[in-house]
Design a protein around this nucleic acid. Structure first.
Length: 498
DNA sequence: CGGGATGATTATAA
DNA sequence: TTATAATCATCCCG
């Protein structure tokens, strides 16, 4: 409208001097000069302009008819060329107004986010296909599919709405653009419109629509964010694992204390195991990522305060030992009286800690030292020695011997791992020293004495190590009295009550 | 109700 | 990518 008015004004000012057409009202022609060619034409022009200016006030049919009439008017070509001329002069300002629209950073951000959330981008089909794609995209997070299904369903919903809306907007945009272009093309018959102008108009329309699109994208992002936060909130609402599940995890942790980093397969297995035991009670399952979380937390918390976990560690060391003993008992029963192969059938799953039978004797002894160290500060410290005696006794069958070895190997691993794996913690050197000492000849002689039933001398050796311990370490706290539950004190080892 | 235990998330480094 | 460290948020027990 402004342009039109301006052009009209220009016409009035430049080409049609003397005739004001402002407001669409042509002044009556000057009197006394009737019949002159110029005046008649001017009146004609004024009339035409008047018709043009009032055309919008008329009904559509009327206007259409009038338009046709004007198009066929004899003055039209002349007027058209005048308009062209005027446009030529005012065109500069229009042309100067065009700007290269740089990509809106906010829009880009929104686009990126939608892409990242999987809302935008290629359609991933529906249902399981989307699930597989999502799992593949997040790299082995397939285990979360159950808990994520709800989230994904909602996300898919959002994506569908988004795409529907987007399509609708695009369609509307195209329709409107086509409409405007047709309009402009038609108008170009009555006024000069360059292709560039049409292009510009299209650009304006697209910009308008893209701003609408941005609103759509923004609200979609908001929806996703809300969904996400709700989802995360829901996940934050944690439930403690069942006792059985925790037990399974702890068992693994403490029996792999030197390297408590379960492989992906191990995690899967643990998750499955936990889920199975859990599913009897609650309907929840434990995922691989939860196992990872658990191990992550456990490692860091164990490391932070080893002392606090001693009790637990010993408990589980004993537990796994007993379990292993029970599992192996049947296998070993057939060769019950073969003391030279106490370790057969008790191979650790962890190759790293497989010991041959000769070494296992040393281990056993070492373990007696390290293990008993915790009892030195206790009034019933004699128990440990007694258990050594009984260990040496003939009443033990192969299975029990195996159990003892197993138990102590576990415990040794446990103790060593404290120093090797986390050697900055309490009294690490003491234990290392002890282990070294234990493997030296003096200790081996102790073993021999033990084996040859010389408890008195063995005891003196033990006393020596006691002194050594007392001098060097605070191990007493590290290995509390619970420890000897890991050691055989009765001929038939039974699982410690948990 | 307070505080420790614990599962989950986040930030950061290797 | 994964492990760690810190932190958050909730659970749970006394």
């Amino acid at each position: 409208m402004d342009d039109q008015a301006r052009i009209m004004q220009s016409i009035g000012g430049v080409s049609l001097a003397g005739h004001s057409v402002q407001g669409g009202m042509a002044l009556p022609p000057p009197h006394g000069h009737d019949g002159t060619d110029g005046d008649g034409r001017k009146q004609d022009i004024g009339d035409i302009l008047h018709q043009i200016m009032t055309i919008t006030d008329q009904s559509l049919d009327e206007a259409q008819a009038k338009k046709h009439g004007l198009n066929c008017h004899r003055m039209k070509p002349a007027l058209f060329s005048v308009l062209c001329e005027i446009k030529e002069k005012t065109g500069l300002s229009i042309r100067g107004a065009q700007e290269e629209d740089p990509p809106d950073p906010q829009l880009m951000r929104l686009d990126n986010m939608l892409l990242a959330e999987g809302v935008a981008g290629p359609e991933k089909g529906g249902g399981s296909a989307a699930a597989a794609a999502a799992a593949a995209a997040s790299g082995g997070a397939a285990d979360n599919s159950i808990e994520h299904s709800d989230y994904r369903a909602k996300l898919t919903q959002i994506r569908q709405i988004y795409h529907t809306e987007l399509e609708k907007y695009e369609q509307a945009c195209n329709e409107f653009t086509t409409h405007v272009m047709n309009l402009l093309r038609e108008q170009s018959r009555t006024r000069p419109i360059s292709p560039k102008e049409i292009e510009r108009m299209v650009g304006i329309i697209h910009r308008k629509f893209s701003s609408i699109q941005m609103q759509l994208k923004q609200s979609t992002c908001e929806a996703v964010m809300i969904l996400r936060s709700r989802f995360l909130d829901a996940r934050r609402k944690r439930r403690n694992f069942s006792k059985q599940a925790t037990e399974i995890l702890n068992e693994y942790f403490y029996s792999h204390l030197s390297n408590p980093y379960p492989s992906e397969e191990a995690k899967e297995e643990l998750a499955k195991k936990c889920s199975i035991t859990v599913s009897q009670g609650v309907g929840s399952t434990i995922t691989v990522s939860q196992v990872s979380n658990w191990f992550g937390n456990k490692r860091i918390r164990y490391k932070k305060n080893i002392g606090k976990f001693q009790e637990e560690a010993n408990l589980y060391a004993a537990k796994t030992a007993v379990n292993a003993a029970h599992a192996a008992a049947a296998a070993v029963q057939s060769q019950a009286n073969s003391p030279t192969t106490p370790n057969s059938g008790f191979q650790m799953k962890d190759e790293e800690f497989q010991l041959d039978s000769a070494e296992s004797k040393n281990t056993l002894l070492t373990n007696m030292f390290t293990g008993s160290s915790g009892s030195f500060n206790l009034p019933n410290s004699g128990d440990m020695f007694l258990s050594m005696q009984s260990l040496n006794g003939d009443s033990y069958q192969g299975a029990q011997v195996g159990a003892n070895v197993q138990s102590q190997v576990d415990t040794l691993r446990h103790v060593i791992s404290q120093t090797a794996g986390y050697n900055d913690a309490l009294g690490g050197n003491t234990i290392i020293d002890l282990c070294l000492v234990a493997q030296q000849s003096s200790v081996q002689s102790l073993l021999k004495q033990q084996l040859t039933k010389d408890p008195v001398k063995a005891r003196s050796c033990l006393e020596q190590s006691k002194v050594r311990l007392a001098k060097t370490g605070s191990l007493g706290e590290a290995l509390p009295c619970h420890f000897h539950s890991a050691l055989p004190t009765s001929p038939s080892p039974s699982p410690p009550s948990s």
